[in-house]
Nucleic acid binder design. Sequence first.
RNA 1: GGGUGCUUAGCUCAGUGGUAGAGCGCCUCGUUUACACCGAGGAUGUCGGGGGUUCGAAACCCUCAGCGCCCA
Length: 862
Amino acid sequence: MSQRELPSSFTPDLVEALLYEKWVKAGYFTAEAKSDKPPFSIVIPPPNVTGILHIGTALDHTIQDILIRMKRMKGFNALWLPGTDHAGIATQNVVEKQLATEGLSRHDLGREEFIKRVWQWKSESSGAILKQMRRFGDSVDWTRERFTMDKGLSRAVLTIFKRLYDAELIYRAERIINWCPRCMTALSDIEVDHSDDAGELVSIRYGEGGDAIVVATTRAETMLGDTAVAVHPGDARYAHLVGKSILLPLVNREIPIIADEHVDPEFGTGAVKVTPAHDPNDFEIGQRHSLASIVVLSPEAFVTGTGTEFDGLDRFEARKAVVEALRKQGRIVAEKRPYIHAVGHCQRCETTVEPRLSKQWFVKVAPLAKAAGDAVRDGRVKIEPESLAPRYFEWVDNMHDWCISRQLWWGHQIPVWYGPNGEVVVTGPDEKAPDGYVQDPDVLDTWFSSALWPFSTLGWPGSTEDLKTFYPTSVLVTAYDILFFWVVRMMLFGLFAMDGIPPFHVIVLHGLVRDKFGKKMSRSKGNAIDPLELMDVYGADAIRFTLARGANPGADQALAEEWIAGSRNFGTKLWNATRFAIMNGATVEGELPTFDSLNAIDRWILSRLSETVKEVDQLFETYEFARACDVIYHFAWDELCDWYLELSKEAFASGTAHDSKRVLGFVLDQLLRLMHPIMPFITEELWTALTGGESIVIAEWPKSIPSHHDTDGEKLILQVQDVITEVRRFRNDQGIKSSQRIPGRFHAPKEFARYESAMRFVLRIDHPEEGLFTPSKTLELGSFKIEMDLSQAIDHVAERARLSKDLVAAKKDRETAIVKLSNEGFMAKAPDNVVIEIRERLAKTDSYIERITVQLAKLPLA
RNA sequence: GGGUGCUUAGCUCAGUGGUAGAGCGCCUCGUUUACACCGAGGAUGUCGGGGGUUCGAAACCCUCAGCGCCCA
């Protein structure tokens, strides 16, 4: 245990990597499978293997690391489990693009070779994000790193699939699904992004004369697959036509006119074309009326099988061609262009999604979602902040069945085998399908495996020690925009697989990181902030502190580079303060002196520290990271650096600071611990230098000390601060340089005598030489009187202005107080302490006004 | 269309009934035993508009206006 001198500045790029390796090597981040310590666990939202650390991830990780590091210091068996997600579509796209540069498609390689190629890609070029997490300081347990395609996790996938299937919660059906014609796969609802696009709305007349009906559509080409026209049953305009049929133009097919409650008679003409194979609503109508579903688009979205001239056209070409053909027949009644309407796009490639009839596997979510909703409703799972809970319910209560099959190769292949006579066998782990059976070629939605993450990573379906110790996990931290993709799904599967025990106790939701004007970051706008570049410049700690400081519960935060610079400056401030403390003999050796034996400056800082510890601890525990950072920032910068160190300098210089050295050592030691979860690197460097300890990572978390709470000490120092500030203000207004020493005399109550030298030191006011003192200015401040001999003349004009301003402010304060005290309602109903406070305020302003008035009267007019 | 937020200093945001706050920016001064990535001092707000509840409202209620997000 020995102290170390600090270099003049902190160099994050040189230090951070070394510290991180030291921590990993020491095993600080490795959780114990079995332990007497209480468990605290978080599973990381697994980033895509293709991913890099972006600013949102940085925020997410900062919050998780704060919680984990704090709990570790509190003596918990803390586990932060890292890993990555195989990200089916995204990863497959990356490798397919790579193949394309070689002029190959995945079909050229074949399924097996292609998958090999993806694994090869993963082993070579994935893991960028894992390296970046090390740079960022994430205290994750690398010995437990997982990947959704690992053997263990794949086993979990097979297990749950079979269980769900056996419970009749997985089924296969022909449904309208979102189809991406570029990725050539089905997508779930949440993989589709809607945007308002400019399209066209054309109104088409079907039929002739009095029996004609006009329908409107934005996708004219789908009319080739119409199998009915529907109207509302109560719509008198069409009552005479219901039950009859009408000739579908271009195709010349007789289609029925049907009545269905679903049709909105107010919208458009009140009649709609029905294309069951290409629209989800039409599909429902088709089901109710036993209509045929005619697929008119190929998987690539080319018109096919209609027997018309349009076969072979791409959907957008066909749209134009169909409208033209109808126009020639005089059937286009109206056209609206542009027509702004919501259009779905593939989240991964932005291609316009095509609703398409297709045979897919689904999870029946109703019973699972009910359980997921109840777990939050009955308080077993808490959502923080609570205000976001309605968003959770909105989803869980209205969830559609989940399409889980994807027409991809990269992922968990669906464990369903088809026999030669249409038999269907689902294989669990260690099970084999009979010979001659063929496996379903599709793979599962990536979210299917990520939904198992909180327990598959801990060894489920095995009954492992990790699972017993760490499930359910303590908190789940993620941005609110992923609540539905992931959190809801983990709830569904966790409750199902783990016998009704939800996967986490608390869901902590944070917001998104935006640019400095609160606008969404995007590459195209050029306002994206790259945490990796910023880490090079400012270090990881500065980014972490900035993000934590902006993390108000559930709310988005704006971010600007200059604010990160500000956080870096804060680190530097702390660095210099600690360096100064070490140079002046601050120590952590020996017992802290008895509290009552200390001077008020020391008692005050200890009292403030104790309060700060209490507040920060509570704020961390309630996920109020922004406020916690604010409290730390002000304690460290304002109270410790600007006041305590300044007031103590005289004692350090004069060698009378024996107790203060120990107090300062203690305060810094505790403050660094308190800050460590947010700024792990610089606090480690400073703490080990100051204390000679092994590592702050494993240091004990600070405790608030009630006996250090010292109202009198705080009051006294508050007065000292007021006096100093007033004298500084006077000097400033008078244009007296702060380095200019002034002779002066202090007249103050006894209890301040002990602090006169400290105040003189800060204010540069010297004892006057015997017999030579002729005070030219007297400042009266509360019970203080300071006489000064100003070598230069006072600027009376400036002084009059200063005092007049104070007088106005004081009179206003007095007025407010009087109004309240003379208000009968206030006197009768306001609580006693408030009344007392206002009375005191009045007395204070009264005497203040009197003093200023006297001083003003004494001032010469010129 | 349904839901849900937001509107406070130049900018970004805290502040859930008792004299309006922070960071950044701005102005003045400044090499004093750490720190110019600094210090000291200062300026800046009818808390979106209107109404109500209350002794007392930025905060609670109603209403209007503007902006945002989610879902359809």
